[in-house]
């Protein structure tokens, strides 16, 4: 790939120059000191932003996860109590299971649909209007999408169930039954995120040189074989990124559940984020909520790391 050939070259010239000018710099040229100051000034906004909005909250969150903190009174250090409670908390493990089920459904269905859509788009049309239409659901706010879907899916009055009834079937309690709640929310989530993922995959497809397909065709490969042997391997870095983002995004699902089912019925859709939110903002147990957030954070890091390794996401096969 282009980047891998140019980077070392640039690095070589840079080190060469450093060697040549090294002694002068060490002597402490005023110009160099001025550069450093300017550099600090220039990166200051980013550094301050990072410290204030990322580093400090994370560290404070970690600290709070070892305390009993109810917001209006100062936090009280409780050591590992929160962790012990977490291990024994049935609702936490149940919520984790619900979340994993949701992630599995929305990632598998979402990835399949968005790759298919992207490939079809890529092979059949160059229309920008169509690409715009594909991404439309992504532009709708989660709360609006969730509200509209929950109206459409109402077992008694929703348009979907009216159609189901006219086809002669019994109405389905999409959001009202334990069995259907999570699959339904996963499908709404897929509907909402698919367009965005499809466009990213589509962009990835455009970077694959057409000559490769020409070569494939000359060798007698059909469309299916070219998709499996050429498109998928060449797309791997893009697919890995989409996968990682979808997994993280799905683990963090909140708005759709909060609007459609509030975790019900009987905790069937009580995803982890909702449980954390309820503990923190409903019951003021910010310490314990921070412990759960930290656990989720650790799990997400582990999962992401695993995915990157398994998919060798930093390498491409295009070279």
């Amino acid at each position: 790939m282009a980047i891998s050939t140019t980077t070392p070259a640039r690095g070589r010239t840079a080190t060469g120059r450093v060697r040549k000018t090294g002694p002068v710099r060490r002597a402490g040229s005023p110009a160099h000191r001025g550069d450093a100051r300017l550099a600090w000034v220039l990166i200051a906004p980013a550094v301050i932003g990072f410290l204030v909005f990322a580093a400090y909250p994370t560290l404070r969150g970690i600290y709070l996860s070892f305390t009993d903190f109810r917001v209006l009174t100062p936090p009280e250090w409780t050591g590992l109590d929160n962790l012990k409670r977490l291990v024994a908390d049935e609702v936490f493990w149940h919520s984790l299971g619900v979340t994993a089920y949701f992630v599995l459904l929305s990632v598998v269905i979402g990835m399949t649909l968005s790759v298919t859509t992207a490939v079809v788009l890529h092979r059949l049309t160059a229309s920008t209007a169509l690409r715009g239409v594909i991404i439309l659901p992504f532009l709708i706010s989660g709360v609006v999408a969730a509200t509209t879907w929950s109206w459409m899916l109402d077992a008694q009055l929703g348009i979907v169930n009216i159609a189901i009834r006219q086809l002669g079937f019994d109405p389905v309690f999409f959001l009202g039954s334990s069995r259907w709640a999570i699959p339904t929310i996963a499908l709404i989530s897929v509907w909402k995120g698919m367009g965005y993922n499809a466009i990213i995959v589509f962009a990835g497809l455009q970077t694959i040189p057409p000559t490769i397909y020409e070569a494939g065709r000359i060798d007698g490969a059909n469309e299916m074989q070219m998709f499996r042997r050429l498109t998928l391997p060449l797309l791997r870095p893009v697919l890995a990124m989409v996968l990682v983002l979808t997994v993280i995004g799905s683990f963090q699902v909140f708005d759709l559940v909060a609007v459609t089912t509030q975790g019900g019925p009987a905790r069937a859709s009580n995803v982890l984020q909702l449980y954390i939110y309820d503990k923190a903002f409903g019951q003021f147990e910010f310490g314990y909520a921070a412990t759960m957030s930290l656990a989720l954070f650790a799990m997400l890091i582990a999962i992401t790391f695993l995915q990157m390794r398994l998919l060798r996401a930093d390498e491409s096969d295009t070279d």
């Binding site: 109206w151 077992a155 008694q156 009055l157 929703g158 109405p171 309690f173 959001l175 009202g176 019925p265």
Partner: peptide, 15 residues
């Protein structure tokens, strides 16, 4: 049944 309506009481009567 439980979960059959997801809309509020006024909408249920109104429907």
């Amino acid at each position: 049944e439980f979960g059959q309506f997801t809309v509020g009481d006024t909408e249920q009567l109104g429907s």
